[in-house]
Every structure is written in structure tokens, then in C-alpha cells.
Design a protein around this nucleic acid. Structure first.
Lengths: 203, 203
DNA sequence: CACACCCTACCTTCTGATAGGGTGTCCGTC
DNA sequence: GACGGACACCCTATCAGAAGGTAGGGTGTG
């Protein structure tokens, strides 16, 4: 009924928040032990090495993300609304400080010093997210709901990069609203509503 | 005539490349000592503590950046060309791997675990860069050379965030060209040439 | 019994930092 | 010009603590 073992989940959750705060080298087993209320050695029982821990964490994050996006596909059909939901999700995570950064984005910034196995998982997340965004944009463009300036793939990369940059700016300014300031125009631009925003073309 | 002491500069240069690779906790005095060819203790002579070292590094980076942008203002008058120069600079740095990431952007991603003094310098860089971009966009908009969808300030934040996201994507994909894939459309969109790109408005 | 789980105790290596001594160079005074 | 302090620079030696990890034993439960 209940979780088989919440301890390993607690460890993962704690590791995630610590990584989100300071990256791969920004936390230690001792840090986790303090928060979870367990000894260092007990963590090694669940995750023999730090690489195991982080690799598992990233892999699970990726699975959750893919499942969440698949669920979004089912619940929301409009491409623009899907994109809004995606940015809205992060806006909420940042606003309530529950996850003020994507763990994969943060780890990606340290790719050169990441253990290879972790790096592979991180790259996989980027490819996965990019593929989903590409499909959403492609569909939105085909149905005339979204206005793309270039190929769906290129627009997907722009979208993803902008979202990541928005996270960084929100953190740098210490202002969660900055995420919306950056991602808002991104969505507006893609929306091709009947009303022209401020293009005010003559005639 | 020559530099008073290149050693401290060597230390800073080495620290920069190490931080760009792995962040604040991604390098140690021992790493620098190995590369520069001196002992750990000698580094402490130039920079008593790690905080001193990184704070100096970021402060200098910020000064160099401000000087570079001021110089750009003198050499190039067209706002769009100024933005192109800015992104082109980073495109080159990433392509030749001389500085595949902005040290301030990388440190900003770890702000929660950064020593306060370092964090202040990092935030200052964000404000400084944002201010410059705002002024360029404002001028470009006033002269009708750039087409803004919202206020210069908001567009500046979008621009900065997109550039940072582009750096991240280039690193995640291991492909320097990805930086251009993301920043190219950004510049295209701001350029308000006579030819409408693919808006193809009816009539 | 076997196994999952957590513990104490310990190890090795790295980390940032300090103490103190050895060079060399510049500079003022005799 | 000689002398000696002041200082910049780099060294060896050493430290306390944190890092990731191991060994092995004590519980419980199926």
C-alpha cells in the first residue's frame, strides 16, 4: 500500500534540492545524512556511490518529466496551452521555491566535470525535452495555432534555451517573477491570435 | 614595461577556466597549483582565501566586460550590429573553446551556495549587462532599427536569458553551433528590415 | 536462514588554510 | 659604494576538517 521504502525516496528528494542549490559538487553524503536523519553509511546501503545516487536521481527525473508531458498531452490538446502549462509548471515551482531550478539544467552547466554516466542521463533529458517541444510546435504550426519563424526543431531549441535562461535570471535577480517576464513574450510571440499584438501594420 | 607579475594573472586565468568547467566547488587550490606550476601555499600569498580569489576574478571579469561593451559602443554605432557583435563574441569563445561559458552565468546558477561576497559581484554583472542591453534596445527602438514586442527592459531580459540558455544548450549538446541556432532567431526577430520574414500577412 | 535496513567505527584522500623559512629586489642611510 | 631593513614571492611542512567509501555488527521481518 504505502511506499516500500520512503528512505531512498527521501534521500533522492534531499539530494535533488541540494543539487538544485549548488550542483554536483555542492553537496555531500554528510549533508544528506543531516537532513534525512540517518548516518552516512546508511546512504551507501541505498546508493553505493555518489554516481549511483545522482544517476538514479536524474534518470527518475527524466522518467517523471516524460510521464508528466505524456499526461499533459492527454489532458490538454491545444499546443499553445501545452506550452503554457509547461512554463506555468516551472513558474509555480520557482515561485514556491519547491524546485527553483531544473536539476538537469543545473547539472548540464557542469557537464565537463560530471561523471560520464550522469552526463549521459543529463544529455538524454535535453534530447527528450527538445523532441517533445518539437512535436508540439510542429503540430501547432500545422494547425495554424502557432506561428513559427523557422523550423519546429529550431524553435524548440529556442524555447528550451529561453526557459533555462529564464530560470537563471530568476535566480540571479532573486525574483521569481523574472521567469514570467522572460517566458511571457516567448509564448506571446508563438501565439498567432487574430488580434495583432502591437504590430500595428499600416492599413 | 612587462606585467608586474603574471603569476596572479595566471592563477586567475586558470581559476576562470576551472570555474567555467565545474563551478565554484568544482576546483581546488591544488588544481590551480598543478596547472600554474607553483605550490598551493603560493596561491594563498596572492589570494589569501578562495573567496578572495573568486571575488577578484568576477570583479575583474565584470570590469573587462563593461570596458569591452563601452569599446563596442565607440566602434559600432548601429544597435543591431552591437547585438550581433555581442553574440558573435560568445559564439567565437564557444567555438574555439577558449571560454565555453560566461563565468558569471555559471556562478549565478549556484548562487544559493556561493559566498555572499561572490554572489554580490555576480548579481552586479547581471544588472550591468541588463542595463547595457536595455540602452541598446531602447536606442534601436527609438531609431526604428529594432522592433520590440514590449519594453526595452523586458526585451533586454529576454535577450540576456536567451543567450545564457544558448550557452547551456551548446554545452548540453556538445555542439558550439547550437549557440547560433538559438541566438540567430533572436537577432532576426529584433531586426525590422523592410522585408517581412515569413509573416506573409493576407493582402 | 536470509535479507533489508541502519548503526558504529574506521580508512584514505582531498580541502582550504597557516606557520615559518629561504630567496631576491628595491630603497634609504651612512 | 656598503649595509640593512622592508617587502614580494615562493617554498616545505603541517594542520583540522570534510570528502567518499568500507568493514562489520546489531536489529527486525518474511
Amino acid at each position: 500500500m504505502s511506499n516500500l521504502s520512503t528512505t531512498s525516496d527521501d534521500i533522492l528528494a534531499c539530494a535533488r534540492s541540494l543539487i538544485v542549490a549548488g550542483g554536483y559538487n555542492g553537496f555531500s553524503y554528510a549533508d544528506i545524512a543531516d537532513v534525512v536523519g540517518i548516518r552516512k553509511a546508511s546512504i551507501h546501503h541505498h546508493f553505493p556511490s555518489k554516481v549511483d545516487l545522482v544517476r538514479t536521481l536524474v534518470a527518475r527525473h527524466r522518467q517523471n518529466a516524460e510521464a508528466g508531458l505524456a499526461n499533459l498531452e492527454r489532458q490538454v490538446s491545444d499546443p499553445l496551452e501545452q506550452l503554457r502549462s509547461y512554463t506555468g509548471y516551472w513558474q509555480a515551482c520557482i515561485a514556491d521555491a519547491s524546485a527553483p531550478f531544473c536539476v538537469c539544467a543545473l547539472l548540464a552547466s557542469q557537464l565537463p566535470v560530471l561523471p560520464e554516466e550522469v552526463g549521459l542521463e543529463v544529455r538524454a533529458h535535453f534530447r527528450s525535452l527538445s523532441a517533445w517541444l518539437t512535436s508540439v510546435l510542429e503540430r501547432g504550426s500545422r494547425h495554424g495555432q502557432l506561428q513559427l519563424a523557422s523550423t519546429p526543431r529550431a524553435e524548440a531549441e529556442v524555447f528550451m534555451a529561453t526557459v533555462h535562461g529564464a530560470m537563471l535570471s530568476a535566480r540571479a535577480y532573486g525574483d521569481p517573477k523574472m521567469f514570467g517576464v522572460v517566458t511571457g513574450p516567448l509564448l506571446e510571440r508563438l501565439a498567432s491570435h487574430g488580434h495583432d499584438r502591437d504590430e500595428r501594420r499600416p492599413i
